[in-house]
């Protein structure tokens, strides 16, 4: 299981990376915005994408749309972990095809729940 973590703050990437490691996911890579993440996804055989929304360059929602528009990537499960908390934004992300949405600040438990749920659905 190879996971890409996209966030513009290195501390947040590190927190998510540590939490994922505790959940048994040790194969992770990092990117600081959509512009650097997209080519990595296109060439890197990733199985899961965890992305922030608000980033300089390409935002998370635009990255999600780019992933869904790419024939080879459109099935990739995407979890959004973000401080964006407007109802309209959550609906926008759902319509763009997000698989899970976690609002910051979040707990390890919530992250685990959402990831489990996504894989249950993907594998089921």
């Amino acid at each position: 299981m190879k996971i890409l973590i996209v966030d513009d703050f290195s501390t947040m990437r590190r927190i998510i990376k540590n939490l994922l490691r505790d959940l048994g996911f040790t194969n992770t890579a990092e990117a600081d915005d959509g512009t650097t993440a997209l080519p990595m996804l296109q060439s890197g055989n990733f199985d899961f994408l965890v992305t922030d929304w608000n980033m300089p360059g390409m935002t998370g929602i635009d990255l999600l749309r780019a992933v869904r528009a790419d024939d080879r990537l459109k099935q990739l499960p995407v979890l959004m972990v973000t401080a964006e908390a407007k109802r309209d934004q959550i609906i926008e992300a759902a319509q763009a095809g997000v698989n899970g949405y976690v609002v910051k600040p979040f707990t390890a438990q919530v992250l685990k729940e959402k990831i489990d749920k996504i894989f249950e659905r993907v594998n089921g």
Partner: peptide
């Protein structure tokens, strides 16, 4: 809206924001 707004400060007092 795709630019994002960052954390909401008075989430509990606003209807359009989840808390």
């Amino acid at each position: 809206s795709s630019q994002g707004e960052g954390p909401q400060i008075h989430a509990d007092k606003r209807e359009d924001v989840v808390s």
